[in-house]
C-alpha cells in the first residue's frame, strides 16, 4: 500500500511542470486556431466578413452551441453524454406533435422532457455506478426508439407560425433569434459559473472525485445536475431545429453528435474532466462553424466533413486528455 502512495506522489510531482505547459497550450490554442481559420476563410472569400454572412453563420451555429453547452457540463465533471443528439431528435418529434395543442409552449414542454430524460440517465449513472458512456449509449437507443414510435418513423410537419420566434431576425441589425437564444444559454451558464461556487464544484468532481467528496462537495448532486442540464439543452436544441425545418423527425439531430463532441474537445475542454468551460465551448463551436463555411468556400466535397470531425475528435482528445488519471487505458 505504501508503495502505491509513494507512486502517486511521484506522478503528481513529475506532472506539475508538464501540466503548466499543457494548461498554457490549452488556454490559447483554440483562440489562435479560430482567428487563423477566420483569416483564412476571409482571404479566400472576403465576403465572409460582411455582417450578413457572419450572422448567417451565427444562426447556423445556434443548435450546435445549445447542445454543446449542456454536454460540456457533463464532460467537465469527467463523464460523457453520448445521448444528446438522439435526445434532441426525440424532443423534436415531441415539439412537432405538441405544437397544435400547446403552440410555442411545446418547446418548454420538450425542455422539461429532455431534462427528465437527462435526470434519469444521471440517476442510473450515479446510483448504479455504471460508466456514463454505457448509460448514455443505452439512452441513445432508448430515446431514438421512443422518437421512432412516437412519430411512426415519419417526419412530423409543423403548420402555423407559433415557433417563428425561434427562427426569425430581430431589429434593424437582422440579428437571428436562434443565435440570441443560444447566446442566452451560454451567458446563463457563464453567470452561474461566475457568481456561484458551482464552477469549482464541477472542476473538483472532474479533477479528483474522491478528494472532492471528502472535501464536502456534493458530487452526486453535481453529476445529476450536469446530466439534467444536458438533457434540457438537448430538448431546447430539438425545439430550435423544429423551428428552422418546420418539422420534427426521429433522426433530425442524430448527425450532430460528432460535431458536438468535436466542438467541446476542440475548444479545449479535456475529456477527462476538471478542465474546461463555457467560453472554450463557444470558441469550439465557432471553430466548427467557420470550418464548415471554409470547406464550402474552398469547394471541398461536403461528404468529407464527417472524416474531418473524426480526425478532429481523435486529435483534440489526444492533445487535451490528462493521461495521469489512468492506470490502464481501456
Amino acid at each position: 500500500m505504501s508503495i502505491k502512495v509513494d507512486d502517486k506522489i511521484g506522478t503528481v510531482r513529475r506532472a506539475i511542470p508538464v501540466r503548466d505547459a499543457r494548461a498554457l497550450f490549452l488556454r490559447f490554442m483554440p483562440g489562435i486556431v479560430l482567428v487563423v481559420l477566420v483569416l483564412a476563410v476571409a482571404l479566400a472569400n472576403p465576403l465572409f466578413l460582411r455582417p450578413n454572412s457572419l450572422l448567417t453563420a451565427a444562426d447556423s451555429a445556434a443548435p450546435l452551441l445549445v447542445l454543446a453547452a449542456g454536454a460540456m457540463l457533463v464532460i467537465l465533471c469527467g463523464s460523457i453524454d453520448l445521448s444528446v443528439a438522439a435526445l434532441a431528435s426525440m424532443c423534436s418529434v415531441f415539439v412537432a406533435l405538441w405544437v397544435p395543442a400547446l403552440g410555442g409552449w411545446a418547446v418548454l414542454a420538450a425542455v422539461l422532457v429532455g431534462a427528465t430524460a437527462g435526470l434519469i440517465q444521471g440517476a442510473v449513472h450515479v446510483v448504479a455506478q455504471i460508466p456514463s458512456f454505457i448509460v448514455t449509449l443505452g439512452g441513445l437507443a432508448v430515446w431514438s426508439g421512443i422518437g421512432l414510435v412516437a412519430s411512426s418513423a415519419a417526419t412530423v410537419g409543423v403548420e402555423g407560425d407559433s415557433l417563428e420566434w425561434a427562427f426569425t431576425r430581430i431589429g434593424d441589425a437582422r440579428i437571428p433569434s436562434a443565435a440570441l437564444i443560444a447566446a442566452g444559454v451560454a451567458v446563463l451558464i457563464a453567470a452561474v459559473f461566475w457568481f456561484t461556487p458551482v464552477r469549482r464544484w464541477f472542476e473538483a468532481v472532474g479533477s479528483a472525485e474522491p478528494a472532492a467528496v471528502l472535501a464536502g462537495v456534493p458530487a452526486a448532486q453535481i453529476k445529476l445536475a450536469a446530466f439534467t442540464v444536458s438533457g434540457a439543452c438537448a430538448g431546447l436544441a430539438g425545439g430550435l431545429l423544429v423551428a428552422r425545418t418546420y418539422s420534427g423527425a426521429p433522426g433530425l439531430a442524430d448527425s450532430l453528435l460528432l460535431p458536438v463532441v468535436a466542438a467541446i474537445v476542440v475548444g479545449g475542454t479535456a475529456i477527462t474532466g476538471g478542465y474546461g468551460g463555457i467560453g472554450r465551448t463557444v470558441i469550439g463551436v465557432l471553430i466548427i462553424t467557420v470550418l464548415r463555411v471554409g470547406l464550402s468556400v474552398a469547394g471541398v466535397d461536403p461528404s468529407i466533413e464527417q472524416i474531418i470531425y473524426g480526425v478532429l475528435v481523435i486529435g483534440a482528445v489526444s492533445l487535451t486528455i490528462d493521461r495521469s488519471k489512468f492506470q490502464v487505458m481501456k
Partner: peptide, 16 residues
Amino acid sequence: RLRIPSFMTTLGVSAI
C-alpha cells in the same frame, strides 16, 4: 499509442 479511451477513438474512426 495515443493512449485515448477506446470509445473516443472508435467514435472518431466510425465518422471517418
